[in-house]
Design a protein around this nucleic acid. Sequence first.
DNA 1: ATTGGATGGAACGGTATCGTATCGACGATG
DNA 2: CATCGTCGATACGATACCGTTCCATCCAAT
Lengths: 204, 204
Amino acid sequence: MERKCSDEKRKRKPTGAAVPRAELTEALYRAFFAEWAEKGFAAVSLERVAARAGAGKAAIYRRWSSRVAFAAEAVDALGLRMAMIEDRGSLEADVTDFLFRLRVVLRHPLVRRILPDLHAEAARSPEMRTLNTRVAQQRRAHGSTLLERAMARGELPATLNTTLALDLIPAPLYWRMVVVGATPSRQEVAEMGAAITAGLRALA
Amino acid sequence: MERKCSDEKRKRKPTGAAVPRAELTEALYRAFFAEWAEKGFAAVSLERVAARAGAGKAAIYRRWSSRVAFAAEAVDALGLRMAMIEDRGSLEADVTDFLFRLRVVLRHPLVRRILPDLHAEAARSPEMRTLNTRVAQQRRAHGSTLLERAMARGELPATLNTTLALDLIPAPLYWRMVVVGATPSRQEVAEMGAAITAGLRALA
DNA sequence: ATTGGATGGAACGGTATCGTATCGACGATG
DNA sequence: CATCGTCGATACGATACCGTTCCATCCAAT
């Protein structure tokens, strides 16, 4: 969300001014995601993105140096910020609550198309790889607090393999929704939460 | 693996003959996967595929009508046939064995890049969607026999929610390897198998 | 009021891929 | 041995993007 070259220029020449319109930057982000979801990352045309945002191609090249730079800023501008989870009192309740929130995110058609594309692209280019790990770290944070609370409660031992535990929590729902392509009922999500909780306890 | 138009033509004119070379078809499949993994599905150029296979573009257009048709036949020619799993005597042993086999498949760099791309593309076009579900069904078969054996042993109740169970088994390893992008040690896979087994038992 | 910088829009030459058509060569069938 | 379809190769016109450049315009800070 920070502009690039323009800031430096303004520091050097604080006289006359004209700042990149933030709303346009935002519109470009949205158009980029829409194109990404529609055609796939590799097939995103910056010309179409600009047209979709009602802008000229120049507006893009003025802000970012490459497609990857564009994608990077777009992704962490979106942030994917799920609200932090409140304490539900028990590990199973916390896990189930987390799954419900993840279900909301994965129901979004843009997310369902962009996330797997991001993973595939992460295996191709190093830049997308770092971008993917940044998104992953944001995710891990939520799971971590969840586990720490359980350990504080004594529901899980402090010797827990947290890496493995963090895989266990979101994976089944992601598999169901992204890989299989189906949205489970709320009842099924609850059952899933119970099973995952049992798996976590067995990890000790 | 069956040719398309040529068969019909041969039925009409059974005189002189010349059959599409099967080895070339195979080479085209391989080249297609290589390009797919390298550039992403949307960016696959049939020209490069042909060149990579040491063939002319005509050889492709002679066999398939569209890129999707090509992809479809390529995928189920590959088959992704993991050998069926032998009975290891217990549910946990069976699950762990399954995970080890899945780990072998997911270690393959081509698979790691193509699978998520396939899922993303499945959310975009109906043709790729049916292709994805076909691959999924092949997968489900293995998991199903695994569960049935456990139910026969009495380790799992017959009332088990198999759909949920089939999500639970491969998901954590897939998440770790494809989404996170890391390969777990054999020790970790074993722990994962134990946790999943506990989760399955809790699904009753 | 002037000035500087960003804006939308349009054009540029260059490259890549598309899908089709055509060629001579090869080889298996009959 | 004659035939006929596939083979690799090449050329074709048509699109689509690329990344850059120039323009007239508009806005905000001097």
